[in-house]
């Protein structure tokens, strides 16, 4: 190899490095000097609706529900946390004709999905009238939208009063439980920070795929399902994962823990980044995967 070709190779390497730098490096306008802020979960407070109840009108007709929701949101605000406004999302969905179904329960899941909320808090207001006084009960439940994991449950009671001011009673019921509710939620958040957040992984095959979960592939010729489990075991945060079930055509991990931050760089770590690692793993086995990420659910389809 003469000097000319060495210079040529060096020039190509330099050009490639500068190209990679210009593509993947942070531009100066957004450079924070390495400061990383953890991406916070999006929380939305929604009213509880019974089967067939119109979600669109339930809030407009019931001021007690509106008061309870405002009080709950106020609780989050007092902890310095901003919630996603349910009414605004509902209006936006209505204006943009985003609802694809008239089914009320389906509509609720559509709002949760389109809002991008990671956590939703459901508030049920129960008004009780009696001769010994009137009262309002408030049932609060917080769930992780993607996994359905319960984060906090509390019942707030106003106590019985000889009054028809149900707004005040609803407010009192919320006041009586919101702090406790948020404290329990915070312990669950701390647990997520320490032990990782949950993602669901759904692995299936395309219609024309020649592979199955029992297909023996890769250099060791092990069944595909076993190789997937070994990879998940090695790559889940703190080796924490749970398999919902495996058939020859599908494998579902209903709870795989991933860290909130990349353990090497300290940058935020998203389900999408984990999906990319999983994608690379399937590629390394000589498969043709297709990945989709919706919230905290990773869908892998092997062609």
């Amino acid at each position: 190899m003469n000097m000319k070709s060495i210079y040529f190779i060096l020039a190509i390497i330099l050009l490639q490095t500068s190209l990679i730098n210009s593509v993947f490096c942070q531009n100066s306008a957004t450079n924070s000097g390495g400061q990383v802020i953890v991406v916070q979960p999006k929380i939305m407070v929604i009213p509880y609706t019974k089967e067939g109840e119109d979600l669109r009108t339930v809030l407009e007709n019931d001021e007690n529900k509106r008061i309870a929701i405002a009080k709950i949101k106020d609780g989050f605000d007092s902890r310095g946390f901003t919630t996603v406004d349910f009414v605004a999302k509902l209006k936006a969905a209505k204006d943009n004709n985003l609802f694809t179904s008239d089914n009320q329960s389906d509509m609720k899941s559509q709002i949760i999905q389109m809002s991008g909320a990671d956590v939703y808090v459901q508030a049920e207001v129960i008004v009780e009238k009696g001769e010994s006084g009137n009262s309002v009960k408030l049932i609060l439940t917080a769930y992780e939208a993607s996994t359905g994991n319960s984060l906090s449950n509390k019942v707030g009671e106003s106590g019985k009063f000889y009054t028809d001011d149900f707004n005040k009673l609803a407010s009192k019921a919320a006041e009586n439980c919101i702090e406790d509710f948020l404290n329990v939620m915070q312990t669950k958040f701390t647990d997520i920070v320490n032990n990782g957040k949950s993602v669901i992984i759904d692995i299936s095959f395309g219609v024309e795929s020649q592979y199955k979960m029992s297909s023996e592939i890769g250099s060791y010729g092990l069944p595909l399902s076993d190789q997937i489990e070994i990879w998940i075991e090695e790559n889940s945060y703190k080796n924490n994962y749970h398999i919902q079930g495996t058939t020859d055509l599908r494998m579902i991990f209903d709870d795989v823990k991933i860290p909130l931050k990349n353990q090497v760089t300290g940058n935020n770590y998203s389900p999408n980044k984990f999906a990319l690692e999983l994608f690379k793993f399937f590629k390394s086995l000589g498969l043709q995967p297709h990945k989709d990420v919706k919230g905290s659910t990773i869908y892998i389809t092997i062609k």
Binding site: V38, V39, Q40, P41, F76, R79, G80, F81, L182, M185, Q186, F189, T190, I192, V193, L260
Partner: peptide, 12 residues
């Protein structure tokens, strides 16, 4: 306590 990083703020 939050300001002095003794406890974490609400959220992650």
């Amino acid at each position: 306590l939050e300001q002095h990083n003794i406890i974490r703020k609400f959220g992650f």
